[in-house]
Amino acid sequence: MDVQVVHTLDWKTLEVHPMFAGGFQVVIRGETPWPMRVVLEPLPIGIVPEDYYGVKLVGYDEGPVHSDVVTPFEVEKDLAELPHGLVGVVIIGATMRAYIPPKAARPPR
């Protein structure tokens, strides 16, 4: 039985771009220390709604790692496809977070 190893990853750039048909797309770029399949994974939904719903940037090993080979990655996702909290989404990395919309720009309640 194969065990998939999951790594929470950081990124070099995270951008939000408007799409032609409306809405927005989040584009995340970075590097992994070896080849991985990189995806955005929503955290389990809590009982109490939160302002920002968490989505982790994770990498899955694609097989046995024989040596370190720095591998660039790019993840693109329609923002409407990500689960939202009352205000927006927080992308969570190994040591960083990005709030969409930014906390400073959120509208008053």
Rank of each mutant, 00 (worst) to 15 (best):
L86P: 05
P44K: 12
P102A: 13
A98Q: 08
V48L: 12
E31P: 13
D68R: 11
L14P: 14
P72M: 12
P49K: 05
P33L: 04
V89M: 11
R109Q: 11
P44C: 09
L57C: 00
D2R: 15
G85I: 03
V3T: 08
A105K: 14
P101L: 07
A21P: 06
G46E: 13
E31C: 05
P83Q: 07
K12G: 15
I28V: 06
R37T: 08
F73Y: 12
H84W: 12
I100H: 10
I28C: 02
V26K: 01
A105M: 15
P102S: 14
Y99Q: 04
R97H: 14
E41Q: 05
R97T: 14
V6L: 01
P49G: 05
I28F: 00
T71L: 03
H84Y: 10
D51A: 07
F73I: 01
M19I: 02
I100R: 13
V55K: 01
P18V: 00
F20V: 06
V3E: 11
V90N: 07
E50Y: 06
V38C: 01
H84M: 14
M19Q: 07
V6P: 01
L40I: 01
A21G: 04
T32L: 02
L79P: 14
W11T: 00
Q25T: 10
P72H: 13
K12N: 13
V75G: 00
P64I: 10
T13W: 07
G59H: 00
A105D: 14
P44H: 15
G46L: 10
V89C: 12
F24P: 01
E74Y: 08
L43G: 13
V87W: 01
I45L: 15
R37Y: 06
V69Y: 04
W11H: 03
G46A: 05
A94S: 08
V26Y: 07
V48Q: 10
Y60H: 11
L43R: 15
G88F: 08
E41P: 02
P64V: 13
V16Q: 11
A21Y: 11
P49I: 06
H84L: 10
F73M: 02
T95Y: 05
V58M: 02
V55F: 02
V5R: 10
D61A: 04
G63K: 01
R37N: 08
V39H: 10
V16D: 04
L57E: 00
V89H: 04
L82C: 10
E76I: 08
I91V: 06
P101R: 12
L40A: 04
M96H: 09
L86S: 05
H17I: 09
D78F: 07
M1I: 08
E15N: 15
F73A: 03
V70S: 12
E62Y: 09
G23W: 01
A21W: 13
V5C: 02
M19W: 00
D2W: 15
F73C: 03
G63V: 01
E50R: 15
